[in-house]
Design a protein around this nucleic acid. Structure first.
Lengths: 125, 125
DNA sequence: TATTTTACTGCAACTGTGTTGCAATAGCAA
DNA sequence: TTGCTATTGCAACACAGTTGCAGTAAAATA
């Protein structure tokens, strides 16, 4: 069940995603919007935007949730089957438009793969 | 700074790792040992055991910390550069003795790669 | 063995991320 | 304009993990 009404919260949050490059953590989003939207609402809107396929979520370095409106993923390819990169210097997180091959594994099926790559981004090299 | 004194807590925790196959989450370890060891101590001992290279830590599905005494990683190869597998049915987590190739990425350096594969394990197929 | 040093432990209180219940508000269709 | 109900804000909660500190106990030293 995604977004069914266009509200102030939805507008503010989508505008935030349009204005950034890369991903944003829920905590950062709450910091930026807490004077205008309650944090509970932020969590709930993000959930719905993900249902709608507008953003996707994943976990960053310390296990906190990040969201990205990734242009590289569309349609059925959506569910973040691409790796994410987090810079260990500045903390910035991006989607990587590459594919990571996972070998077949005996006696197991693979539903989903989460790949987080840690390193230095081009600004911090 | 790893373990420097052999205490009851260290014995109980290492004994737990000897008795299991695969990985164990901090929460499960606390459940099992909370009558014998305080949770703060469990967190602190795990940290030291990781410093010593006896176990390694990584994040599971919901961002909680897991530890494994993985036999496949030794010496400099230690720092969990292997993928981890979490069963979406039973929740069991294992180290996978395979290598995932990460392509070189322009304008970035790679320090570490976290790969979590979600799917069904051989018991749940 | 007795003493001393200090690593380790337990406790209580705290932090940060995320969730839940519920009453009030506000899109939007009719 | 009205009525339905999705959405919101608030307060309180849940849970993983951390911190400060005083007391305890390995283990080195005498």
């Amino acid at each position: 069940m995604g977004i069914s009404r266009r509200t102030k919260s939805v507008d503010l949050i989508t505008k935030e995603f349009e204005s950034i490059s890369g991903a944003i953590s829920t905590t950062e989003l709450i910091d930026r919007l807490s004077e205008q939207i309650n944090k509970t609402t932020i969590y709930r809107v993000l959930e719905k935007l993900e249902d709608d396929g507008y953003v996707h979520s994943f976990l960053g370095k310390q296990g906190i949730t990040w969201y990205a409106k990734c242009d590289n993923c569309t349609g059925h390819y959506h569910h973040d089957e691409h790796p994410h990169f987090q810079c260990t210097e500045c903390g910035k997180v991006d989607c990587l438009p590459i594919t990571v091959q996972i070998p077949k594994i005996e006696n197991r099926t693979i539903d989903k793969t989460n790949v987080l790559i840690l390193g230095k981004c081009n600004m911090c090299l």
